[in-house]
């Protein structure tokens, strides 16, 4: 009886397969080196989408911890009220998951940007707000009046609660000439409301002819 190994076809097949495996392995190895993607780790990417208010409304102490929680799958993407639906959609895009509506437990999305403002007459200089501020945007010392550096304030309102004399208010940043811009036109169905069909017909070419004649 012939041994299985003495069959030349089998040997050729083994050699061919091994050869192919080595070849493809080499090609794949080369490709993985050559086209290496030096992407940000996912946490970085998530963190860069979050609004960095560090407000903790998501239940995590800051944006980065929340990003880590999302990346590890322990938190949903819909817990960031300052970022609102836009951030949720962005995250959904990045992570290829369904865009959920904002979690009502975390809070509501506010339309306006706000900054903290300290009513200086009332401030007793307790430094509690300074300790609460996640971005060191409050200036002051014990028994000295405090003030908010507006340009650094993220509007997280974490300083409001600790103040013993309730002297911190969140004020809305008003739209000024520098940040005004046009908004998108209303949807077409809104434009049509109360619109008469004859209005479309009368703006046709006929009109210019009259105007030309005039």
């Amino acid at each position: 009886m012939q041994s299985a190994f003495s069959d030349p076809i089998l040997i050729f097949a083994v050699i061919a397969l091994v050869g192919l495996a080595v070849l493809f392995g080499a090609v794949l190895g080369f490709a993985s080196e050559k086209f290496k993607v030096e992407g940000d780790p996912i946490v970085e990417q998530i963190d860069s989408i979050l609004p960095q208010t560090q407000c903790g409304q998501c239940g995590y102490p800051g944006c980065r911890p929340y990003a880590q929680a999302i990346a590890s799958g322990e938190a949903n993407i819909n817990r960031c009220p300052p970022g609102g639906q836009a951030t949720i959609n962005h995250l959904a895009d990045l992570l290829d998951v369904e865009a959920l509506p904002l979690d009502a437990e975390s809070g509501v999305e506010e339309e306006e940007t706000k900054v903290a403002y300290i009513i200086e007459d009332l401030c007793i200089g307790c430094t509690k707000c300074i300790q609460a501020c996640p971005v060191d945007a409050i200036l002051g010392a014990a028994k000295q009046m405090h003030t908010v550096i507006t340009s650094e304030c993220t509007g997280c309102d974490l300083c409001v609660e600790p103040c013993p004399v309730d002297c911190i208010e969140m004020i809305t940043v008003e739209e000024g000439l520098s940040n005004w811009h046009w908004t998108l036109p209303p949807s077409s169905s809104k434009q049509i409301e109360g619109f008469k069909i004859t209005d479309v017909i009368t703006t046709d070419r006929v009109k210019t002819k009259q105007d030309d004649a005039a």
Binding site: V200, I201, T203, D204, R205, T208
Partner: peptide
């Protein structure tokens, strides 16, 4: 928003 003038051609 501008433009305030519009061409005569309409889809209809």
């Amino acid at each position: 928003s501008s433009p305030h003038a519009h061409g005569p051609t309409k889809t209809s």
